[in-house]
Design a protein around this nucleic acid. Sequence first.
DNA 1: ACCTGAACACCGTTCAAGT
DNA 2: ACCTGAACACCGTTCAAGT
Lengths: 197, 197
Amino acid sequence: MVRQPSINAQHRPPLSIERIVEAALQIIDGQGLGRLTMRRLGDALEVEAMAIYHHLPRGKEELLDALVAHVAAAPAAAPAGDRGGGAWRDELRRWATSYRARLLEHAGVLPLLVTGRNPAALMSTTASLREILRRGGVPEDAAAGAAHALLALVIGHTALEVRGNAPGQGERTDWDVRFHTALDLVLDSVRPARRTG
Amino acid sequence: MVRQPSINAQHRPPLSIERIVEAALQIIDGQGLGRLTMRRLGDALEVEAMAIYHHLPRGKEELLDALVAHVAAAPAAAPAGDRGGGAWRDELRRWATSYRARLLEHAGVLPLLVTGRNPAALMSTTASLREILRRGGVPEDAAAGAAHALLALVIGHTALEVRGNAPGQGERTDWDVRFHTALDLVLDSVRPARRTG
DNA sequence: ACCTGAACACCGTTCAAGT
DNA sequence: ACCTGAACACCGTTCAAGT
């Protein structure tokens, strides 16, 4: 029961990959990717920059990989009521909407996502997409194609939205409308097999 | 007629924005975006790095803007035979295919494209897309939506392709097939008005 | 095991100076 | 007008050292 004085240093939580990634994300969201430096990250964690290398031996490269993994991870798939009749379309719409929101929330990470880095990061995402389509009765092949198209659309749209929302834009384009228009354009072409088992 | 000796220095072409952008693109394509530095760019142009600032006063930021403009510029639209019957679909397919090829050729610039930088860079591109759809008899509103969806799809697909083509990938996915599958998914939903004037 | 301090080889950029 | 040289304030990272 030795009460620590509230001098606030000393007994801060120990460094961990989670804390590092969280602090990095905060810097990116608040100041932009360009201002994420190991030294600034160290400051935010109240630690010397060199301490980070003990947890991420590959240094900044490994940090960026972790950021991609963190942002690209699939949002938890809804439990799926699946009362037939094409409810899977709504499920895909919800999925796409929340994934877009996730990307916009961390728009500064987007440039890292369109790189070869951390190729495995999107696997669970595409898998959960294919699963929704499979449950909707869409044949395996078509489901793979549709899942890919959907993910590409969400990423591409978000990229355009980030570009369009740059300061000093004249006309106010309604990105929500654009997004759902494009979404429906794809979803309307996806068809389940004649009869669902 | 004073023949210059072929000592190769001295009478090189004078620095210009075009030469600078071209050299920068060569560095990115060959070594990656991360290795594009003002000093290396200077070396490639056989000039001190500081000379570049005379042509691009805003420095590296302006250089990156110019790179985005260079890569994102619309490819020359085909002259359009327009013998009815939905030839515009083929025209859009050709456009999308060549735009994808352009992005893949300079994949290292893609991260710059999914940023707020140089918001005007894609305007001519979307305009030329809308023009093709308009000529195909697609109503203005639907054309705007379809153009946006198409561009988002091409950018998003290229992003996934760049990620997938990272070294050390197991299964050989056929990106051409994926691309055209996704393309058709979108194009199949775009309909011209009942009767074309 | 975990963190620090000093050092190294690089960055982008400014500014006075050269031609 | 166009380019250079030296300098400044930063980077990422290594490595020996502390606790």
